[in-house]
Simulated assay, not measured.
Amino acid sequence: MGLFGKIFGKEEKKESCCCEMEIVELSEGDTAAPCDCGDACAAPGTESTTLTVLGPGCKRCHQLHENAQAAASKADGSVDVEYVTDPVAIAEAGIMSTPALLVNGKVVSQGKVLAPEEIAELL
């Protein structure tokens, strides 16, 4: 429980994903079934890329988001684009300069607006 939760008596609720990792030994001939949770889990063999734009909502952040959407629309595979303006989430990602771009959770750019062509190269 965080400091404010202790003061005001609110509890933080932690949700777990239905796809928590579990080590399972398979015998020969067995195949693993894909997750049926309906979330962003992908079946084996299918790849989904997630572009995440982090920023407070300024003009440069919006421009990077638009460029990411343009690059995603031209991409061959499945590409999702997210836009995060939550300052806590930005700090937790270790971002010191916005706008920032993450590809599958990995920081690839901070403090500049990438062109759609540059973003497409990262995919």
Rank of each mutant, 00 (worst) to 15 (best):
P56M: 10
I7D: 11
Q110P: 07
C19R: 09
C61P: 00
D39C: 15
Q69T: 08
L102R: 11
A115P: 01
L122R: 10
V107T: 14
I23R: 07
D86F: 06
L3S: 05
M96V: 12
V107I: 15
T98K: 08
Q63Y: 09
N67A: 06
E15C: 03
E11T: 01
V113C: 11
A33W: 03
D80P: 00
S27N: 09
C61F: 01
A32E: 12
N67K: 13
A72M: 06
R60W: 04
C37V: 12
A120T: 06
T31S: 01
M21Y: 03
L64I: 05
V81T: 07
V103M: 11
T98F: 00
E118T: 15
H65W: 05
P87S: 15
A72E: 00
L102K: 08
H62K: 12
V79Q: 01
V88Y: 04
G55N: 03
A43Y: 02
I95T: 03
G9W: 09
I119K: 01
T50Y: 07
C18P: 05
G77I: 07
V84Y: 10
D76T: 05
L114G: 02
L54E: 04
F8M: 10
C17R: 15
A72H: 08
M1W: 10
P99M: 06
A40C: 05
G77A: 13
